[in-house]
Simulated assay, not measured.
Amino acid sequence: MTDLNALGRWATWTEIHQQPDIWRDWGRALDVAGLRAWIASLDVEEVWFCGAGTSAYIGDIVAAGLEGKRFRSVPTTDIVSRPQAFLSGVRPLVVSFGRSGNSTESNGTLDVLDALAPTAPRLHITCNRDGALATRASAGPLKVIALPEATHDAGFAMTSSFSTMLLTTLALFDAPCDVAQRFAALSDQLRGLLPLMGAETPLPERAVYVGSGALAFAAREAALKVMELSAGQIPALWDSSLGFRHGPKSFVTDTTAITVFVSSEMPARAYDMDLIAELRSQFPMARVQAVGVGGDLDIAMPFGAVWAAPLCVATAQIAGVRWAEALGLNVDAPFTGRGTLSRVVAGVKLYPVVK
């Protein structure tokens, strides 16, 4: 059995548990009115959410959760490799996410914009006040949101950086609300949920996370957290609740931990619940957990499913740390000694932008 007190020696465990305090304080400090006014003043056709890895998944969650608007998730890894495919005859607001703000693809995207869309407005949301996203100038309109220093996670896995960048983006692009009040409510909710997420769970051989809409992409981030923290020793799959039956369900074994993020929205919630019943019937030996409205871990979603995404993902953050500890790994640096992955991605060679 994992000693919960011992987990406190890991920065990652602390960074997960500091999220309620960060959200509450940041909700009061963020200049929502000024930033929303600046965004409204821009003459843009689309808003692009750009990042790599977890930072890209923030864009996926937002674009899926805020329907009916011209929002696109465009990973920096795609922009850098095929810039002309995106920047042709369009003037977007490019919203860039970065924990360090120094990844090769973050810099490469800025190079692409300088070459092909120098006057396109940019909004940089970063956890590092000294990184390229925070310090590099632009020929066009630019705003930089430097999150609190505490969000600049020291651990390998992005946790508070992910959630705070996501909530910041929702505060700026979802329907107007009392952001300080909403962040405080989410803070209280996560604070109450975290002890419930600490229940002992057997170490699985595989993990699956599924959901609908924005929560499908929250499932993507959840699966990544488990793979990162376990250094790949626990393969993890993600999909949508309806898409999972179309082949990916073949991944499930009797020793798979399956988590379904249950939406508050209909008919998505009905499909989520149907899948849970099916999986429990077909795989009675597997552990199937419903996380969300009315689930085994009951997460209310008064502001909609997209705002609950960081609450759902926190379950995988907690599970990932516990499972990494059980595997005897360095939770803050699971790939120590391998040289295959690093906290800030390295080894990417940038090529010149062809105009």
Rank of each mutant, 00 (worst) to 15 (best):
A85C: 13
F86G: 03
F86C: 04
L87N: 05
S88K: 14
V90Q: 13
P92Q: 08
P92R: 07
L93Y: 08
L93I: 08
F97N: 14
G98C: 07
G101Q: 12
S106G: 05
S106K: 06
D111W: 03
L113G: 01
A117I: 01
T119Y: 06
P121M: 02
P121V: 00
L123C: 02
H124A: 13
C127I: 01
C127P: 02
C127K: 11
N128V: 06
A132C: 03
L133S: 05
L133I: 06
A134Q: 08
T135A: 04
R136N: 06
A137K: 13
A139H: 10
A139W: 02
A146Y: 00
A154I: 10
F156R: 12
F156L: 15
A157H: 06
S160R: 13
F162T: 08
T169Q: 11
L170V: 10
L170R: 09
C177F: 11
C177V: 14
C177P: 00
D178N: 15
V179M: 09
V179K: 10
V179L: 06
A180F: 03
Q181G: 15
F183Y: 11
L186F: 13
L186D: 09
S187L: 09
S187I: 05
D188G: 11
L190Y: 09
R191H: 12
L196S: 09
A199C: 10
E200M: 07
P202W: 11
P202F: 07
G211W: 13
A214I: 06
L215E: 08
L215W: 07
F217G: 01
F217P: 00
F217R: 07
A218H: 10
K225M: 14
V226A: 08
E228Q: 14
L229R: 09
